[in-house]
Structures are given as C-alpha cells and as structure tokens.
C-alpha cells in the first residue's frame, strides 16, 4: 500500500496495484484494483471490462477507447518517464475532452510538484510520484494558479468567453 494525492488531498493506503507485463505473463492474477498496461488491456478487454481494473498508459501511447468502454474503466494512469516529457498533458486532455472520460486520471512517475497545477488543469485528479517524497509538501504546489486564460475541466472558463 502506498499514499497518493487524490482530489487535492493526501490519501493514505491507495488500494490500486500496478502489474507489469512480466508479472502478467508469469500468470499473476488480475484481482480487483489491479492496473494493467494498455497493450495487455487491449488484448484482454472482454475479460477485464466491468471489473475494477485500471489501465496504465505510457507517454508514447495514444489510447483509443469507445465511450462504452470508458464508462466501465475506473482508473487510467498516465506515465511520466521523465518530468520533461509533456505528452501526458495532451493524453489527459484527449481523454477528458475528446472522449469525455469522467473517471480518475492519475499522473504516475517522474513528474514534479511544480507541474501539479498544470496537470490538474489538464484533467488529472490523482498523483502518484514514482519516487519517495513528502506528499504534503508536494500538495502545496497544486493551486499555484487560482485561475487561467484557457478553459479546463475544473470549471475555468476561457477568458474570451467570460
């Protein structure tokens, strides 16, 4: 069990468990609250949909889901292999805005606290750093900006539409 930031609070003992391809290939069971790689999910989605299974998307992947599928996916995790890899920001916006995904989008990996305010604006609702850090400290950066020029999924209206 690990702690995460979720809905702008530190949340202890997050139940979700990340399964790697190696673990899955060696027969590890996809229990409730498992997160599986997108490639694996695509192959086994008939079996996994409707269960509490999360999906792990790496920054080079551009996922494709149907609206019906998304309604049955409780969690999508987007990986930041290095903090400067900004593809995850676009992937989250595509999920939220193009595909209308309403579930949890989690940033995972090497993102830094100074990115939280923008990540949140792109639609991320939880944050799981892939390194040891003080989440209470990290959380302080989440509202560096209280407003913005662009519309977002947190209720900010574009400046030109106010």
């Amino acid at each position: 069990m690990h702690d995460i930031i979720k809905n702008s609070e530190v949340c202890v003992d997050d139940p979700w468990r990340l399964l790697t391809i190696d673990q899955l290939d060696s027969g590890e069971e996809v229990a409730s609250f498992s997160i599986v790689p997108y490639e694996y999910w695509k192959e086994h989605k008939q079996k996994l949909l409707g269960h509490k299974t999360g999906i792990f998307i790496d920054s080079h992947e551009i996922p494709v889901f149907t609206v019906q599928e998304l309604e049955q996916i409780p969690l999508i995790i987007i990986n930041f292999p290095v903090f400067s890899d900004g593809r995850g920001f676009s992937i989250a916006r595509i999920l939220r805005e193009k595909l209308g995904y309403a579930g949890e989008i989690r940033a995972y990996g090497q993102f830094i606290r100074d990115q939280l305010t923008y990540l949140k604006r792109c639609g991320f609702t939880s944050f799981q750093p892939g390194y040891s850090t003080d989440l209470n400290e990290m959380l302080k950066s989440i509202n560096d900006f209280s407003d913005g020029y662009q519309s977002d999924s947190n209720g900010i209206t574009a400046v030109y539409n106010r």
């Binding site: 903090f83 900004g86 920001f89 990115q115 923008y118 662009q150 977002d152």
Partner: peptide, 17 residues
Amino acid sequence: EIIRQWSTFHPEFAFLP
C-alpha cells in the same frame, strides 16, 4: 494579444519537445 493570453500559462503546452 489574444494569442498572448491563450499561450500564457497554457497548461498543456509547457513541456513541449
């Protein structure tokens, strides 16, 4: 000016290639 506002603190495009 409109583009300045749109591009300033754009949350999606602060870590471009």
